[in-house]
Amino acid sequence: MIKVSVLYPNSEQAKFNLDYYCNSHMPMVQDKLGNACKKVAVESGLCGAKPEAAAPYIAMGHLYFDSLAEYQQAFAPHAEDILSDIPNYTNTQPEIQISQVQL
């Protein structure tokens, strides 16, 4: 299984509409990716390594797929629609990491 993580860096200027992300963006992404997307998860940052430290990421979204090829095939036809929705919930530039789930 692979996990596609979309990480939204935190900063003093960062804005993030978690309600829109959870209730509009992620359902739209799931709908477009169809059965290839096995599950999603959304996290909101609380703090860094020390409780008084700001969280490095304001939010994170995770998408799970059986394989990299399945992710690529599902995402490619909808990339423009999915990416063009980003300004509706944040002013940050997300970082993407694709990982092999080991455990």
Rank of each mutant, 00 (worst) to 15 (best):
Q13D: 15
Q97P: 00
Q13N: 13
Q97T: 09
L33W: 03
L46S: 10
E95S: 11
G61E: 01
V29K: 12
S24G: 02
N88V: 09
L33F: 07
L7M: 15
E52V: 02
V6G: 05
D81L: 12
Y21I: 04
E70H: 05
D19P: 04
S67G: 05
E12G: 15
I2V: 14
P94G: 08
N23D: 06
K32Q: 11
I58T: 12
L7H: 07
I2D: 10
A36M: 02
F75E: 10
H62S: 13
A74S: 10
F16D: 06
V42Q: 04
Y71T: 01
P51W: 01
Q97Y: 04
D31M: 03
A41K: 15
I82P: 11
A55C: 12
Q100W: 00
S44P: 01
L7W: 11
Y21N: 02
K38N: 13
H25C: 05
P9E: 12
P77W: 00
L83M: 15
Y21S: 02
I98W: 05
M60P: 00
A55L: 09
S24E: 08
L33P: 10
S24Y: 03
A36D: 11
V42W: 00
V101C: 13
A79F: 04
S84D: 14
Q102H: 12
V6A: 04
A55R: 09
H78I: 00
A41C: 06
H78E: 04
L68A: 05
D66F: 01
D66R: 06
V101N: 05
L18T: 08
L83E: 13
M28K: 15
P94I: 11
Q100C: 03
S67H: 03
S84I: 10
P9A: 14
G48L: 11
C37N: 12
I82W: 03
Y20N: 00
C47G: 11
A14S: 15
S5E: 10
P51L: 07
Q73A: 13
E52G: 04
M26L: 12
Y89K: 01
M28V: 04
D19M: 02
A53V: 05
H78N: 13
A41H: 13
N17K: 08
L103W: 12
F65Y: 04
N10D: 15
G34S: 06
I96V: 13
Y57C: 07
S84V: 07
L68N: 02
Y21H: 04
F65E: 00
C22R: 10
F75T: 07
Y8L: 07
E52W: 04
T90R: 07
I96C: 06
P77T: 08
D19W: 00
Q102T: 14
A76P: 06
A79K: 14
Q102S: 14
A36S: 13
A76G: 09
P77M: 08
T90E: 08
Q97H: 12
C37S: 12
Y21R: 03
H62T: 04
E43Q: 09
H62C: 07
P9C: 09
D31L: 03
L63I: 10
Q72L: 05
V101E: 14
N35M: 02
A53C: 11
Q73H: 04
V6L: 08
D66M: 02
M60D: 01
